[in-house]
């Protein structure tokens, strides 16, 4: 749990997220850190929905990473679930300050290759941002939960109509 500057980050991430969604044709996208704190979102309706997906995505990433360690598989590039009509793409990427995870849901108007291609470009762009360039100071564990929920409050504040439909 890292970020107290969620509101500002959310603003800065708005455009890269928008570009990712437009180019990859994903219809839902979520950017979280390894603890599940939401940094940016696109396409979600309510904060509780985002919360669930964020927590589960962080858990899935942690499990996948441990599986890779236990089986000697090295690092995964991404997790991909192909459903009947929708697919899920989940990819971790490192920035100097912390590990982030991008989750995207897409349907037949896109492909895994396309989503992965624009994910790579998105990740490169985020890595270059000064906000993700510095190693973060250690976090107070007691502030942990407050920051998890406060982040969502900032993203879903009433005055920000944002991209959530």
């Amino acid at each position: 749990m890292r970020r107290g500057d969620i509101g500002r980050l959310n603003e800065l991430l708005r455009e890269p997220m928008r570009v990712f969604v437009r180019e990859s044709r994903a219809h839902i996208a979520l950017l979280v850190n390894a603890s599940g704190q939401v940094l940016a979102q696109h396409g979600f309706v309510g904060r509780y929905h985002v919360m669930n997906v964020a927590a589960l995505a962080a858990a899935a990433n942690a499990s996948a990473r441990l599986l890779a360690d236990l089986t000697g598989a090295g690092r995964w590039h991404y997790l991909h679930h192909a459903g009947r009509s929708r697919q899920l793409f989940l990819a971790p990427f490192a920035t100097p300050s912390e590990e982030l995870i991008l989750v995207a849901i897409f349907d037949e108007s896109s492909t895994l290759g396309l989503v992965e291609l624009f994910f790579q470009r998105f990740a490169s762009e985020i890595r270059r941002m000064p906000e993700f360039a510095e190693v973060l100071p250690p976090v107070s564990a007691s502030a942990f939960e407050g920051e998890l929920e406060a982040g969502l409050d900032r993203i879903f504040a009433p005055q920000q109509s944002g991209e959530g439909a």
């Binding site: 896109s110 492909t111 290759g113 396309l114 992965e116 291609l117």
Partner: peptide, 13 residues
């Protein structure tokens, strides 16, 4: 290769 594959598939589709 990956970029070309993704983009040509999309274009073709």
């Amino acid at each position: 290769g990956e970029a070309i594959a993704a983009l040509t598939a999309s274009l073709f589709q």
